[in-house]
Write a protein that binds this DNA or RNA. Structure first.
Lengths: 206, 206
DNA sequence: CACTTAAGCGGAGGCGCCTCCGTTTATTAG
DNA sequence: CTAATAAACGGAGGCGCCTCCGCTTAAGTG
């Protein structure tokens, strides 16, 4: 959702793209992310091209199939989520960082849901995708949880996989309109539990 | 592949169709089967309608999605395969019937291969499809094997599931152009094995 | 700077999907 | 047989997919 133009790098991999090509490519990914978010995975590729201000041919040159585009968008989403862990850790007390990151995780899952059908196809084709991304996500979570435990802002008798496990409710019961709110409440609830019995006094939540 | 016009019945289920509607529906299924066979599962639905001599609207009225049509075609294929078991059993000695049926089974798998991608989607959606059909197929095989054992035209120390298991090689190593020939040879080989040590003298194969 | 050239652009065009609705026709009632 | 009517037909039209290729332009070369 961050509209910030983070120049996608594709860096130093094979041939560097011509400046205009790189610009168009980045633009396409950015636009695609928001179009997929608002219209779902079956959004018209022509609309994406149109909104990005490029011809349909350009879209297809960069992303020969819909799945290619989806994969890049998805990886970027994961990238953003993981990067957020570091940033939040710097700007906030460790427990607040963890909480906010988990809220962002809810958003991420929301996207993933939308992409689910298409991702299922992708995952059977491209088996690295799932392991790559889920590895990175759980590493980000570990970083935050361990920091919070070390600082004593959450209780010490849990680790990252416990927290991930506790969040599993977010994955499962889906697609009611209340889902998002319910999930946000779940995160808060979980945080209260985590703060209870922490070494340091608690920072109040939101 | 039997071009015989077997009137599809849809019998006595909800409202009976108007005569012309029933005719068109049957025609569509028949044509779809051959078009899918020759062009693969992604064949144009418009071509199917064209070849069946009906408008595209008619096709969509009867089969609201491609998957609906695929499912009906597939079920019909299984139907034909299983019906063949009975017919072959009447016209041939029991061991020959079994052999010919297995050869036909090879054709069936060949089709199934073509449909595989689409079927995978179907099967996740419509879980009865797979159990229905695989049940019927293995029952047909049981009928033939048991008859042949009873008549002593094949050895007595095997049952239907052994034979099915022996055919599993047909499922696996795929999609080379030699596949069909290799599979036919596998069937013959298997039959020789089955006849060896049978109570009665052997009918020669093919 | 001008020139060259290959990388990149983009949209027309052909095809398939699917819906919608005016027209046709099988069926039923009289 | 005729009339009424509901069922079914079918294809035009709008949209999206994807390819192909003539045009444009960034990036080197001197």
């Amino acid at each position: 959702m961050a509209e910030a133009v983070i120049a996608e790098q594709k860096a130093a991999e094979a041939k560097p793209l011509r400046a205009d090509a790189q610009r168009n490519r980045d633009r396409l990914v950015e636009v695609a992310a928001s179009v997929f978010a608002e219209r779902g995975i079956d959004a018209s590729l022509e609309e994406i091209a149109r909104r990005a201000g490029v011809g349909i041919g350009t879209l297809y040159r960069h992303f020969p199939t819909r799945e290619h585009l989806v994969e890049v968008v998805y990886r970027r989403e994961v990238e953003g989520l993981c990067a957020a862990a570091g940033e939040l850790a710097q700007k906030h007390p460790s427990d607040v960082a963890l909480e906010q990151w988990m809220q962002r995780f809810v958003d991420y899952i929301a996207t993933k849901r939308g992409l689910a059908t298409s991702l299922r196809i992708l995952i059977t084709t491209n088996s690295t995708l799932f392991s790559d991304t889920s590895g990175r996500v759980s590493q980000a979570m570990r970083q935050l949880v361990e920091a919070a435990v070390a600082e004593g802002t959450i209780r010490a008798d849990v680790d990252a996989s416990d927290v991930l496990h506790a969040l599993s409710g977010i994955y499962s019961a889906p697609d009611t309109p209340e889902w998002r709110d319910r999930s946000r409440r779940l995160v808060k609830l979980l945080m209260d539990g985590l703060r209870f019995g922490a070494a340091k006094a608690t920072t109040q939540s939101s």
